Computed example of a mutant assay.
Amino acid sequence: MRRRGWIQFAALCLAIYVAGWNDGTLGPLLPRLQEVYHVGYAVVSLIFVTNFVGFFLGASTYLYVTDRFGYGSVTSFILAIGNSLQASGAPFPVFVIAHIFAGYGESFLDAGSNAFLASLSENTSTKMGIMHAIYGVGAMCAPLVSTQFARLPRWSFVYLVHIGLVTLNAISQMVTFRFRRQDDILAEIGQPPPQKTKESEAGVNKYKQVFGLRAVHLMAFFIFTYVGVEVTIGGWIVTYVINERHGGANSGYISSGFWGGLTLGRVALLWFNKKIGEWRVIFIYVVLVLGLELVVWLVDSLLPSAICVAFVGFFLGPIYPIVMNHAGTIIQEELISGSIGWISSFGGAGAAAFPFITGAIASGTGIGSLQPLLISMMGLMLVIWAFVPRNRVQMK
């Protein structure tokens, strides 16, 4: 049972690595996309809009699809469709539409991995930190590759790497989970099914129960904002550095520095999270990244900006797995999977919405608007988290 548990964990880590790779690819490509397609900030940001549509559809259907078809690789093939359209170097409208498929498929990678891991009864906090560090590894490695492809005539071939990773993930999930329900998979490693809520015994639909929890909506909104900050930095920081700090062709590596810091923070700060308390420590991390973003905004120098961006990633990194752990702690066992599926998928919507807003604003004011927008979003995170309950909640 222990060996099977580690095999399942490895499959989850591969899925989240693919999600990280997808999120980390686009940043270094944005300047090239503007050059190839002859579009401005607002038009190129339509990519984030269609990605939002895909993530929203994924968030809305996650509970139904997993209950109906079981846990596995069905949505990996939807992601592969999007990656295939992207790799073809198709006209811009087709390239934009491809992100609906990519967003839908990735939402299930995020939601499925987080929901499954949060449902475990042992070592959840440590495993969540490690798994999300693997996400950071994927997001860190992707800019190293996409920066190189951005210089090539066939820049779109970077998405062939995505297709290979998605295929590997599909095989891994088919072999490991075999399209079974999550409760059956957990039973395989000796974990009993979750205790049913009183509402379930009375015949209340799971959707209604999940959406009746105020804490779920608060954490979904928090993650919506957090992931928006994370992906906005990873996506637009390269353009910001090139235009505002006069960076060169290698500026794409700053994005790797951000994702590398995020990866390291999710592992290196595990002890600090436990010492301070996971609910309280989020306030410390958000205040620290606020200060670092002020330095990036106000100090007109490339090297300090690059260093601060890496440290922003370092302190932002632990926040996402902490929220997932907290959700697993305060939500009733039977509703953990559906609740975290909704929260994490909604976070993917933030990954699409905020980068689009950034591009739309930048089209009128310039990319220098990135920093004040990020700082306001970080302030919003502090306010939202203050309302998230510390202890287990009941349906209201």
Rank of each mutant, 00 (worst) to 15 (best):
G138F: 04
Y159L: 12
K127R: 15
S146Q: 00
V175N: 03
L165W: 05
A139T: 08
I130R: 03
F157Q: 14
Q173P: 04
D183V: 11
I163L: 11
F157W: 15
T126H: 10
K127D: 03
D183K: 12
G136C: 00
M131W: 05
D183P: 06
Y135S: 01
K127G: 02
T167M: 13
Q148W: 12
V175M: 01
K127N: 10
G136M: 02
A139H: 04
L144K: 03
L165D: 00
I185N: 00
S156F: 03
V145G: 10
L186K: 04
C141K: 06
W155H: 06
Y159R: 11
T176R: 06
G164L: 14
L186A: 00
G136I: 02
S172A: 12
A139C: 07
L165N: 04
T147C: 00
D184F: 03
V145W: 04
M140S: 06
V158R: 08
T126E: 15
V137K: 14
E188V: 07
M174V: 15
P193Y: 01
M131Y: 05
N169P: 12
V158A: 10
L160F: 09
P153I: 01
V161Q: 13
Q182W: 11
A170W: 01
T167E: 08
T167P: 01
S146Y: 12
V137D: 11
D183E: 15
R178H: 12
T147E: 01
H162L: 12
P153L: 07
R151E: 04
C141N: 12
R181G: 02
H162M: 09
Q191F: 00
P192V: 09
V161H: 06
R180P: 13
A150G: 10
V175Q: 06
Y135H: 09
P192E: 13
T176F: 02
K127W: 03
A150W: 11
G129A: 12
H162S: 15
L160D: 10
H162N: 15
H162F: 14
L160I: 15
V145C: 10
T126W: 14
P193R: 14
I171F: 09
M174A: 09
I185T: 04
I163G: 05
L186S: 04
D184N: 15
G164W: 05
Q191G: 03
